Amino acid sequence: MSSVGRRLRRAVWVGFVGAALTGLLAASAAAAPIGQGTDRAAAAARTDAYIKDVADDVGDQPHSFNPLWASPDIKVCPTAVECAVSQNPIVGATNYVFVKLRNPGPYGTGTSTGVLHLYRTTPGGGAVWPTHWTQIGAVSVVAAAGVTTVTIPWTGVPGPGHFCLLARWVSDSDPMTFEGPDISTNTRYNNNIAWRNVDSVQLTAGGGPVVRPFAIGNSLTVPSTNEVLFAAAEPLQEIGARVVVDLGPVLFERWRAGGGVGTGVRPIGRTQVEIVEPKWASLGNLRLNPGERLEFSLQFSAERASNRLWPFKVIQFGPDTSGTKVADLGGVQYQISSTLR
């Protein structure tokens, strides 16, 4: 593994994919050759509604906050009444996605009129825009000053019911600054775009494993080499938790061919590895073909119950189309709970 990769992983661990990663990714984003950005002098000629990427986001584009993929302004609820905390969608039922549009941002004034689009894809990183995204719905909106909460029905949710969600505000008076194949770059540079990959994992102490999908992808036109990081704020072993990664035959063979590079993991089967490091682990040197996106599975289980949530993040790092060699290409924050039978 390169020294850059080691430094990045260490920074992620120290800040739990937070403040310690901000400076590095901000510098990478600033160097991205994506045009001239937004001219504040032209603010009077346009409107500017935005969706928060993180709690402290005030609409600046680009910004340096991380992670980009846990927007607090996107929420999934089982009814048309907004719930307090976002939930996993119920398969086969009509769910409702609530998106908050905030007006104005720093680049315009006045009422903004447009269409809010909502998309889904398999949880994970490297989802190429627009190839890997499926539209859930779209709603025409007039966003006056303040916060406008937009409700988008989500009918016929397919199994297994775990998705990345992407909201895009499309308005003639509030244009995107840039859109390319990398969702991470698009999100950082456009306050019109927000991304949410948060999944609740409800375990039964002493029960069988709960499975979640995760995908990694390559938005480049050439092969790329990637790393998947597994990070816990606190050791999951405190609740007797076990995390097994089943790479499947294709990705497992790619990992073996790349030298079986990893930290804090051990092979336990023909295509599986177990996470054994209490706070962070990684699988490296994963080669992906141009435009390819491969799915694997995560198996969670726990021996003891707990009255709190245990955050666990899985993130793909690799090169993006801006030229950044070690970029956060997307991830998922799993909120793990464990209850008695």
Rank of each mutant, 00 (worst) to 15 (best):
A127C: 02
A44M: 12
V81M: 12
T155H: 09
V170S: 07
T134K: 08
A144I: 00
S28K: 06
W69R: 00
Y189H: 08
A305N: 03
N226Y: 08
S219R: 09
T121C: 15
P319Q: 04
G92A: 10
G114N: 04
F230L: 14
T22R: 13
L309N: 09
A45M: 14
R120I: 06
L247N: 03
G92S: 13
A232M: 14
V170A: 09
G146F: 12
R256D: 08
R6N: 14
G137N: 02
A241F: 05
Q316V: 07
E227Y: 13
G258N: 10
T113L: 13
P158V: 10
P33S: 10
P181G: 05
A241P: 07
R188C: 08
C77W: 07
Q237I: 06
Q333F: 07
N88M: 12
W310E: 00
A144V: 04
I183V: 13
S338Y: 01
T111Y: 10
P67H: 05
V250P: 00
G105C: 08
V244Y: 01
G125F: 10
L101Y: 03
G59V: 08
R120Y: 12
E253D: 11
V14F: 12
R6Q: 15
L236M: 08
A232P: 09
I336Y: 00
N307D: 15
R287D: 10
E274R: 03
N285W: 07
I239P: 02
Q316W: 13
S140W: 09
P290G: 10
G124E: 05
I152W: 02
T121N: 15
I336A: 00
S112W: 05
P290S: 11
W195N: 00
A80E: 15
L203Q: 01
A127M: 04
G110L: 01
G262S: 14
P209K: 06
P123N: 03
G114Y: 05
F65K: 02
S184M: 12
G259C: 06
P153T: 00
T225N: 15
A138C: 06
S71Q: 11
W310L: 05
Q333W: 07
G248V: 03
G206D: 02
R242A: 08
